[in-house]
Nucleic acid binder design. Structure first.
Lengths: 184, 184
DNA sequence: GCAAATTAATGATTTATTCAAG
DNA sequence: CTTGAATAAATCATTAATTTGC
């Protein structure tokens, strides 16, 4: 980095108040809980609910949740991939078949109908996760839908309703409200 | 997705498909015009305007415009890439330098500040395109912002503004409300 | 102990790839 | 086969850890 200066140029970066979401420990904890609990790709509806719940612990948007799962899954996958790669390399083995470590995650997928017809890759994990909540919505596809849905709630912390600012490009000096994160 | 439903009862009339956007010839013409005119990656603001304009010729959403440019650019690029690849292969040449045909498109980028400091990749094409409309918004980054903006207008054919509903999550056993937001 | 400098994590975008409708 | 839609991989950029010299 330039290191020449970086002082208090606060939030000049682009469009939205704080430059990026900084999850509180509680939020991270809950998210990781859901992830290890089996939720890898939440549907739009789930993202909504998760966002609502996490907003109790700090300001957050649906897209943050969406990104979190995307990144977490991707990095999990790449971690596994590297591990497998070194293993294969170590044993002078080639990956099992076609694209072996291209999808190593033992994610719990949805119902894979019959597996007899392999014409399509079994990417059918679009049904909603193990928890049996009665959401019968077929195809709510992550990001788009999320964005469509969250519409009017720019960031949904439960702050007292101040004068709503569409695009807080203005300085908003300070941060302070940023986080009280004290690591456990 | 189960495909069990998708009633697609109506609206197939008049050139709008139910399941996916089917651009009218006028829309395609205009889009291609803009593309060859130099617009490769419209900002959110531009996407809005384009959508508004194209909605005169048929129903369309911001995401359609977004996807159209994404796909068009991607496929243009891959076409060029293939062409270059065969050329190189044909002449027993290796690509010029590091990743030669990784960015073959002579896209018109925004102002590249000084080019003297190459510390960062010059990916600064985030400023808004040639047309000098006075939008000073720094970083409105494509999809997210588009979605944020278009918010309450699920599909922006010129329908009269109804009362906005913000997505009832409650059980409401299936259906009924669903098609309200998927079909006109 | 403290900040500046460096490195590691990780949030956010962009690009490439894949799926499926027509 | 073409192409709209969706997802995953790669990349960028900023924040937190950490090292280091004082």
């Amino acid at each position: 980095m330039a290191a020449t200066e970086m002082v208090l140029s606060r939030s000049s970066s682009g469009g939205g108040g704080g430059s990026r979401w900084c999850p509180t420990p509680e939020q991270v904890m809950l998210l990781e809980g859901m992830y290890t609990g089996g939720l890898k790709t939440p549907t739009a509806t789930q993202i909504q609910q998760i966002t609502a719940r996490l907003s109790l612990y700090g300001k957050i948007q649906g897209k943050n949740v969406f990104y979190w799962f995307q990144n977490h899954k991707a990095r999990d996958r790449q971690k596994l991939r590297k591990k497998l790669m070194t293993i294969y390399q170590h044993q002078r083995l080639y990956p099992p078949y076609n694209s072996p470590y291209h999808d190593p995650l033992p994610l719990q997928v949805g119902v894979v109908e019959d597996a007899s017809s392999c014409k399509n890759r079994v990417n059918k994990w679009k049904v909603d996760p193990p928890v049996d909540q009665t959401c019968n919505f077929k195809c709510d596809c992550s990001l788009m839908t999320v964005m469509m849905i969250e519409s009017t709630t720019p960031y949904c912390t439960r702050v007292p309703p101040k004068t709503l600012q569409l695009f807080p490009i203005t300085t908003t000096t300070a941060s302070t409200l940023k986080d009280d994160l004290s690591k456990p």
